[in-house]
Amino acid sequence: MQEIIKAIEEASIEIKELIETGDTGKSDQENSTGDTQLKLDIASDIIIERIFKQLPTVKAIVSEEQEDIINLNENGEYLIAYDPLDGSSLVDVNLSVGSIYGIYKNEFNAKNIVASVYVVFGPRVEMVVAIDDVKMYRLKHGKFEFIQNIVLKQKGNLKAPGSTQSAWAPHHKQMVDDIFNDGYRLRYSGGMVPDLHQILLKGGGLFSYPGTTDKPKGKLRQLFEVFPFALAYEKAGGGAIDGHKRLLEVETTHIHDTSPCFFGSNEEIKRVLEVYKAHG
């Protein structure tokens, strides 16, 4: 596992340089879900794939930017699903973006995730590793140094409500309105990584990306985004659900499956469960 963490550190240092100097324009390619790929997405993907291919412990990898699983080493122990540069469209307006990694064994599904890592590229570069607990490291002078353990409070005061509001179900909209009426603060950049990172570091709150009228199964992808953060939030003492059950109990039928998702401290997750149970 440490070999994989070191590889992610190496990739992150290269991606940091790429973000600072690379082309932020669009490519003429689309990813598996029909989104136009930015040149930074493609370049980040190439960096990560090249570095993971050097590791004998990695059996296979799959990227959000590619259609299929890439088999590497038949006798490898780990499978890695990753989003090379989540929120890359925010780079050209100088907002934080990130990379997300889910590390699995045997098969790519929630029950087999054993670790997750995400990296935030902002004013500082920070890496958060979830295995038995959740640890944060910061890039200083070319090396990642341990900063702190991350533990969520039972209740937070931040709310990051994702997706297009016009497509929300009425009960979801009412829940969000009620949360804000209770004094929660809006924190939403449009980047999954920085928004979830902020809730973790500030002690708690709720990030939501529900199923909507145009995307009933949500937008965020299970293997690359949802399950890695679900593991991080649970290991930090919080919760992660699809509105009805733990995200780490959700089944995956295809590597690019999506899921509604809610991440937060325990009081906020309890609130979501109560609202969604009342509305089927």
Rank of each mutant, 00 (worst) to 15 (best):
T164D: 13
K173N: 06
Q154A: 12
M192Q: 13
Q148D: 12
G190T: 00
S189E: 13
A169N: 11
G191C: 11
G191A: 13
S166R: 14
R187S: 06
F144R: 08
L158P: 01
I147M: 11
I150P: 06
G142A: 07
P170L: 10
Q198A: 11
G191D: 05
V176T: 04
H172F: 01
D177I: 09
G190K: 12
N157G: 09
Q165A: 05
L152R: 02
E145W: 00
Q174E: 14
N149R: 13
N181P: 06
V193H: 08
I150E: 11
I147C: 05
R187F: 02
Q154Y: 04
K155R: 15
Q165C: 01
I150T: 04
F146G: 08
K155D: 13
N181T: 12
R187T: 00
K155E: 15
F180V: 10
G190F: 06
G183K: 06
L196G: 05
L158N: 02
R185Y: 07
Q154K: 13
F180M: 15
P170A: 12
N181V: 10
H197Q: 09
H197P: 03
A167Q: 07
F146C: 07
F146S: 12
K173A: 09
N157D: 13
Q198T: 04
K153D: 07
L186A: 09
G191Y: 06
R185I: 06
M192T: 09
T164F: 04
L152K: 01
F146I: 08
G190H: 05
K153G: 07
G183E: 03
D178S: 04
G162W: 10
I150S: 13
M192G: 08
D177T: 07
N149G: 11
P161G: 08
G190S: 05
I150W: 14
Q165W: 06
A169P: 01
A160Q: 03
S166F: 07
K173G: 04
G156A: 11
F180L: 15
D177G: 07
H197E: 12
L186V: 01
Q148R: 10
L186P: 00
F144H: 08
H171L: 03
N149Y: 14
G156R: 10
H197A: 09
L158H: 01
G156V: 10
D178C: 02
G162Y: 14
V151E: 15
Q198M: 07
H172N: 07
G191S: 14
S163L: 08
V151L: 14
V151N: 14
K173I: 00
L152V: 00
A160H: 02
Q165G: 01
A160M: 04
L186W: 04
D182Y: 00
F144Q: 12
F180W: 03
Q198D: 12
Y188D: 03
D177S: 09
A169S: 13
I150K: 13
Q165Y: 10
G162T: 02
P161S: 07
F180S: 14
Q174V: 04
S163E: 13
F180H: 09
Q165S: 08
V176C: 10
I150G: 11
I179T: 04
S166I: 05
Q198E: 12
D182V: 00
